Simulated scan of single mutants.
Amino acid sequence: MDDNTSEDLPPHSRLSAGCTLCYEGAKLVLFLTGLCHRDCWYCPLSQERKNHDVIYANEHMISSPEEMIQVARRMSALGTGITGGDPFYFPNRLIEYAGALKKEFGSEHHIHLYTGMAPTEKIIKSIIGLIDEIRFHPPGELWSNLKDTPFHDSIQCAKKAGLDVGIEVPSLPNIDDLADYLPIIDFININELEWGDSNADEMRKRGYLLRGDVSNAIQGGWESAKKIASLPKVHWCSSDFKDRVQLRMRLRRIAANTAREFDEITEDGTIIYGVWECDGLRVTLPENLDNALFERYDDRIETGWWILEEIAGRIKGTAYYIERYPDNGIIIEVTPV
């Protein structure tokens, strides 16, 4: 494995069931709340999400289980990863949303959950049949003596309840402290430490530097993790892998289900189409243009980029190409015709 990047996937024997589905792009990402009982200095959440009680299904802000199900259906989700903030901040919400997923898609819909808390036995029992896999995120200062902390008790309760149990933490310098705990759990996921807007000041205070110009990854992350990452049960999840493989596979899946006839799906799973700003309900389009190849709106017409390119010299008004995430996702680039 290259010391500067680690885009290649380690052997599947090191992947939990939840990670396998993520690799295939088949998991809905349910962000259940931005609230958390902890305040980790390295938390990479955006300012729009961190410390805000908001719910997202993939990139869509939602307010109900029904909206979540709609998003899951549009990507043919085979499972869901629940994150935050901390999903246990609102246990009843967690039960409601996880229950809705199981009811809609069946018990085979795999749900994993990520938490920075050490939930009690009572709380663990409340999620039996709803959560298949739980990933604990204990603070770094506890890694060397995890058996003497509430996290150990919670982990034991989760194992007794029949859940797949792991630890998921960032690539901090003391990551090797967790090696002795491997026999007790099913897996360890190590996420490459990443720079974000909300943790930038803390990163600077600690002397961290970006690994490169086009990556949010921090220098030294892989170097800290490569010893423990060579052990069985350990999976290294690089920033490159999440951006170039995991996200791309999920976007492709969504695009295949939601793209219009005239949307071009790129290798990265984004879509490209043309926009003509005009009186979209009245202007005349070229004769014999199939209705499936354009959509009319009050202030514009959306169509294939190749169609817009062909008629650009004969129309009045602003025209441009848009590249964006599928399912009305974020706009990546706007290019004038």
Rank of each mutant, 00 (worst) to 15 (best):
P173W: 09
G79W: 12
I272V: 09
G221E: 11
N174P: 09
I322T: 02
M249P: 04
I167A: 06
A17W: 07
I331H: 01
G274F: 15
I301S: 05
V169M: 13
T5V: 07
I123H: 03
L172S: 04
E24S: 13
R300N: 06
G166E: 10
V214T: 14
I332S: 06
F136N: 01
S107W: 12
L113Y: 03
P44L: 10
P170G: 06
Q219V: 13
S238F: 06
G116W: 06
R296G: 05
Y273C: 02
I175C: 04
S64V: 03
T115A: 07
H110V: 00
P10A: 15
A26G: 02
Y23I: 06
V165I: 06
L15G: 00
S198F: 08
G34C: 10
C43L: 01
L9P: 00
L163P: 05
F88N: 01
L281R: 03
D290P: 14
A319R: 10
G116H: 03
K205P: 00
Y97L: 08
I55P: 02
D86W: 10
F187N: 06
L9Q: 07
S215V: 10
L45V: 03
D327A: 15
Q156D: 09
S154D: 04
S230A: 13
D197H: 10
D298P: 07
I218N: 03
I55T: 02
K205Q: 12
D201C: 06
M68G: 01
R253V: 12
I254M: 05
N291R: 10
L308K: 01
I185L: 15
I175P: 02
E202S: 10
T303K: 06
V214P: 00
S46I: 05
H152P: 03
T80M: 15
L28C: 05
N291C: 14
V54F: 00
A77F: 01
I175D: 03
F88T: 00
D180L: 13
V283T: 02
I218F: 00
H235L: 12
M117A: 10
E48Y: 11
N288G: 14
R211L: 15
A179H: 04
T284W: 09
S13K: 15
D53G: 06
D186Y: 08
E104V: 04
D2H: 15
P170R: 04
D279S: 07
C157T: 01
T284G: 11
